[in-house]
Amino acid sequence: MDITLERAIQREAADALLNIGISIPLKEFRLPFRKRPVKLRVTLKRPYMSGQIQFAQTYLSMEVTAEQMVAFTKDEQMRFMAKHGAALCRMIAYTICVGPVRWLFVRPVSWFIRNCVEQHIILAAAQKFVSLMGTDPFIPIIRLAERTNPMKLRLSRAAKGS
């Protein structure tokens, strides 16, 4: 069981690092003369650093953890949506609108999510993406920066002291 859990964690980390994203259905439309409904899908991607900062600020302002969100009962989900629904939709909009002009689209996309997307999709998307956000991708970069400290003597120069 540990191996499957470890592989799932590795796969989630790889998805986040490669910025593949998470595809979610937003809205389902039924068109006449068509048997299957048309599904409007979007991909939630890791935002740029400014978007990650806004995402993190919004998430921290709600004062709830991802583990607590998973364990919510229906009553607690309703209370949470009533209190933090707009902020949750804004967080999802930050992950949909990625790029230098994202600030133009965050409010309309957040409004669309709030008014047209089902609650269980919003909660599932928030729970999944919050688990992918974090500082894990930056840990190897920090370790590399520590190793390449220009003030530290390199191995070849340690004997001479130059």
Rank of each mutant, 00 (worst) to 15 (best):
Q54G: 06
Q68F: 10
P108W: 04
V106W: 05
S110Y: 01
T73R: 05
C116Y: 12
A93S: 14
S50Y: 10
R114P: 00
M62L: 11
P100V: 15
T58K: 09
E76K: 08
F112D: 00
F80A: 06
T73P: 03
I121V: 15
G99P: 06
A71C: 12
T58S: 14
H84N: 15
C97Q: 04
E76F: 07
R90W: 05
E63H: 11
G85L: 05
M78P: 01
M69C: 13
Q68V: 12
R79E: 14
M49D: 04
C116T: 01
H84M: 03
V101E: 12
N115L: 07
G99M: 09
A87K: 13
Q54M: 14
W103S: 10
L104V: 07
R90P: 04
M78Y: 10
V98H: 08
R79V: 14
F105D: 09
R107N: 11
S110L: 05
Y94Q: 08
T95H: 07
S61Q: 09
E63F: 06
Q77T: 12
A66E: 14
E67V: 13
Y94T: 01
Q68W: 07
A71N: 10
R107Q: 12
P108N: 02
C89L: 08
T95D: 11
G99H: 03
C97K: 02
A87E: 11
F80L: 05
I121Y: 02
A82C: 13
G99R: 10
Q57R: 15
Q119K: 14
P108K: 02
G85Q: 04
I92N: 05
K74A: 14
Y48S: 11
I96H: 08
A93D: 00
R79Y: 05
R102C: 15
W111S: 07
L60K: 05
I122Y: 01
V106K: 01
I53L: 15
A87T: 07
T58N: 13
F112G: 01
M49L: 15
A93N: 08
G99W: 11
V101P: 00
T73W: 10
Y48C: 06
I96P: 03
S61W: 00
V117E: 06
E118D: 04
A93R: 04
M78K: 14
L88H: 00
T65H: 08
E63T: 05
A86W: 00
Y59K: 08
W111M: 06
I122R: 11
V106L: 05
W103E: 14
A93G: 08
P108Y: 01
W111R: 02
A93C: 07
T65K: 03
I121R: 10
V117W: 09
A56V: 11
E76A: 13
V64W: 02
E76P: 02
R102V: 13
S110H: 02
I122W: 00
Q119G: 01
T65M: 07
L104K: 00
T73I: 13
V101F: 12
D75H: 10
A71S: 11
M49C: 09
Y94E: 04
F105G: 06
M91S: 06
H120M: 05
H120P: 03
Q54P: 01
Q52D: 03
